[in-house]
Amino acid sequence: MNWTWFHKWGSPKWFFQKTESLIYWFGFLALIFLVVGLVWGLAFAPEDFKQGNSFRIFYIHVPSAILAQSIFLAMAISAAVGLIWRMKLAHVFVETAAPIGASITLLALLTGAIWGKPTWGTWWVWDARLTSTLIQFFLYLGIISLHQSIENRDTASKATAIACLVGVVNLPIIKFSVNWWNTLHQPATFTLTESPAMATEMWVPGLIMVLGFYMLFAYLVTLRMRSEILEREKGSAWVKAYLEKLNVL
């Protein structure tokens, strides 16, 4: 098997040059998907027969909840790659994705609370999904604060990577225990997002929104990674050349 592609991705310079045009595609696709999904979901999708219009926050809540989990998983995979192959770019991904992940998780929590108000009558219910999302939010915060409080950059990267891996090993156990705890304390509440057999007109805009959220994440994380690379490699010749070119233009 040819591994050169893999090593190329480890080079910050190569990554920076390759994403130069790719980032515009991410941004463009994110914009299209989000606009189409939002307009379709909010204006044209049919009303839910039980919840009325309040269900429409589904189009933001569910994509953000899905994305928040995916980011955690992606961070953990990237952390493992960074530790095993000593790939600095993988660490850069972990560090730049963490604040985005935390924000998206917070978005999921807030939209969950907004959805909860008309459905349950309160802003917050210790529903299994909301609770484990809350704990996941705390995990993100812990990882971010760990990264920010270690001064040595290499040490910080690796420590963060280990924390991510420990977190990802624990996340299924946490989710399981929270689910179990939930059935123990409050039997049979109405759970968000578990409406059986959703109509096609209802879930297609949702799917588009999910794609839009993923593209938005790809755009944001590439943007952040690129600026982090510039910061880290500021002494190198190619960054100087790049900046000079920018000034000329």
Binding site: F138, L139, G142, S145, N170, I174, S177
Partner: peptide, 18 residues
């Protein structure tokens, strides 16, 4: 480190606590 430590570790204690 104590504050960071608590923030990092407390979520992982959830299953044990439950």
């Amino acid at each position: 480190g104590n504050v960071v430590l608590s923030l990092l570790i407390m979520p992982l204690y959830v299953p044990v606590l439950i």
